[in-house]
């Protein structure tokens, strides 16, 4: 028998039952599991995307901070270099001023020392020259130095050139003027008379000449009247000597200063 109605009906029912059972125990659980897992994966992907986006934002923020930091560091470095340069310039200037001050003080010190040494040399030279001259004159002419100086002074008056003579004459002839003769020593009367005679004789005067002793003189005689002066003084020679020695000392001082610089 090819077809059986009972079998047909039974198989129909069997199949429907099987369909319901499989839907209940197979397809539904599996599809739900797939759906849930897909949802889970979708969530995870979404979270991963968010995380990636956050990471991107964090990375951008980090880069921004980094560039800001670089810029600030560059600014600080530039400022530091500028401050260091300024400080160096300031210190250099300060040092230069101090060196200049020291150099000036050294120069001043050298100059003072030079002056002191010069003064001492002048003083000693004068004393020595005077002693030597005095001794020489004593030894050679049997006359003391004062007499020789008086003789030289008188000779100087006699040998005045015309201009000097004219100027002295006009000074002597002014009314009310005192005539002083100053010397470093107490001049003997004979010498006073000799000088008085020479002046009055040469300039046709009868003037009263006053003789004074000036301790500032080392050795010499000077005639002063109405602002005009005729003198013979060993100091003139000494001044010349002093000038020469001063020049010599100045040259040495310059050499020392150059070495110090």
């Amino acid at each position: 028998m090819l077809f059986d109605w009972f079998t047909f009906a039974a198989q129909l029912v069997n199949f429907l039952i099987l369909a319901w059972l499989l839907k209940r125990f197979l397809f539904k659980p599996i599809l739900e599991a797939i759906d849930q897992r897909e949802k889970l994966i979708a969530n995870q992907l979404h979270e991963a995307e968010e995380s990636k986006a956050n990471t991107g934002r964090e990375f951008e923020r980090f880069q921004q901070k980094n560039s800001e930091f670089d810029r600030q560091r560059g600014d600080l470095l530039t400022n530091a270099i500028l401050e260091i340069n300024a400080e160096r310039q300031k210190l250099m200037e300060q040092t230069r001023v101090e060196v200049e001050s020291l150099r000036l003080r050294l120069q001043e010190s050298l100059r003072n020392e030079q002056l002191n040494v010069g003064s001492e040399i002048i003083r000693r030279t004068r004393e020595e020259v005077f002693t030597v001259v005095r001794k020489t004159l004593d030894d050679l002419a049997s006359a003391n130095l004062e007499e020789q100086m008086t003789t030289v002074f008188i000779k100087q008056i006699n040998e005045l050139n015309s201009d000097q003579w004219g100027m002295l004459n006009s000074a002597l002839c002014k009314p009310g003027g005192e005539i002083y003769v100053r010397s470093a020593f107490e001049m003997p009367v004979s010498q006073q008379i000799a000088i008085k005679n020479v002046i009055n004789g040469n300039f046709k005067l009868l003037a009263d000449i006053k003789f004074e002793t000036s301790p500032q003189f080392i050795s010499g005689i000077e005639l002063i009247t109405n602002g005009y002066k005729v003198s013979w003084n060993i100091e003139d020679y000494l001044i010349s000597l002093e000038a020469n020695i001063t020049d010599l000392l100045n040259q040495r001082s310059d050499l020392m200063t150059e070495k110090v610089s």
Binding site: L2, F3, D4, W5, T7, F8, A9, Q11, L12, N14, F15, L16
Partner: peptide, 15 residues
Amino acid sequence: PPTSSLSTTAALAVS
């Protein structure tokens, strides 16, 4: 196999 029965295949076809 039950599918070699026409009753079964007919039942499935009717389904």
